[in-house]
């Protein structure tokens, strides 16, 4: 990842502080190439969500602030823009925990995604496209979103973001709370969106195994820092990743209880 010039998104050494006191990101840098799928991996509280929200500018609504570093999208600084500005530029986030508009029908949910593209047009073409990727939503289009299943809500959230005609999608934990089979289905759709529609994907996941199967490049975050990065295939083979994130080690499966925390630190800091 040295060819920064061709990257769609450049995050350079950003620091994020919540409520003016809590330092959450302590200098995170990474690049997302155009048309790529990049994964941000890490445990709870590592800073994945904060990183995504820093990019999509949803941070300010949570009293968070990017205090150092720069975020560039197509070589334009974007830290000071509003979330609305970013969506119009083609960067949309699908938030963790789905966040459907519960009292709207599935189709109304999707149409809210088209709101930024003007009031007048008829969005049936866009709806058709979205329904081609998510046939299940077409069946459920008249259902109130709050009463659909978890998987359908996740699909609605992704489809709604797709309605904004994004160049880049920030997916936060799309696998959360879903059955493995559904997770497969959703990741499959996401990678098709990447290939067929050319949507660049930045994915934050705890489910390291899934993420590394679909992503091409990965960054591992721990305590607000990038501790490791590399091609997905390399990361999958890395001894530490295997041990700490995939639950495997040279002697087969291993319990976390046996891992001594100082050993992890030492190996990565070395």
């Amino acid at each position: 990842m040295t060819e920064n010039g061709s990257a769609l998104l450049n995050v350079n050494n950003i620091e994020v502080i919540y409520d003016r006191v809590i330092l959450v990101l302590k200098g995170v840098s990474f690049h997302v190439p155009e048309g790529g799928i990049v994964a941000l991996l890490g445990a709870n509280g590592a800073g994945k969500t904060t990183t995504l929200k820093a990019i999509s500018n949803l941070l300010r609504a949570e009293r968070g602030d990017v205090t150092k570093g720069t975020i560039e999208y197509r070589n334009e600084r974007i830290e000071k823009l509003s979330a609305h500005d970013l969506v119009t530029r083609g960067v949309v986030q699908v938030m963790e925990g789905r966040h459907c508009f519960e009292h709207l029908t599935v189709e109304e949910n999707l149409l809210t995604g088209a709101y930024i593209r003007g009031d007048k047009k008829n969005f049936s073409d866009d709806l058709d496209l979205v329904y081609r990727y998510f046939p299940r939503l077409k069946e459920r289009r008249r259902a109130q979103a709050g009463y659909t299943s978890g998987g359908e809500q996740q699909m609605t959230a992704i489809a709604r973001a797709l309605m904004t005609r994004p160049k880049m999608m920030l997916l936060d934990e799309p696998s959360m709370g879903l059955a493995p089979q559904l997770v497969e289905e959703i990741f499959g759709i996401v990678s098709r969106l990447n290939e067929e529609e050319g949507v660049t994907i930045l994915l934050a996941e705890q489910n390291t195994n899934m993420a590394l199967r679909y992503a091409r490049y990965g960054y591992i975050l721990e305590n607000g820092r990038v501790v490791l990065d590399g091609e997905a295939s390399t990361l999958r083979e890395n001894e530490d990743v295997k041990e700490f994130y995939l639950g495997l080690s040279s002697s087969g499966r291993k319990s976390y209880r046996d891992v001594k925390s100082y050993r992890r630190r030492k190996r990565w800091l070395a």
Partner: peptide, 24 residues
């Protein structure tokens, strides 16, 4: 029935999500 009305209802349901899809 209007897109703005729909956006209003969306905001009523979930501010954050409304922001995320670019509703001003």
């Amino acid at each position: 029935y209007t897109p703005t009305g729909r956006a209003l209802r969306a905001v009523a349901d979930d501010h954050q999500a409304a922001l995320a899809v670019g509703i001003p």
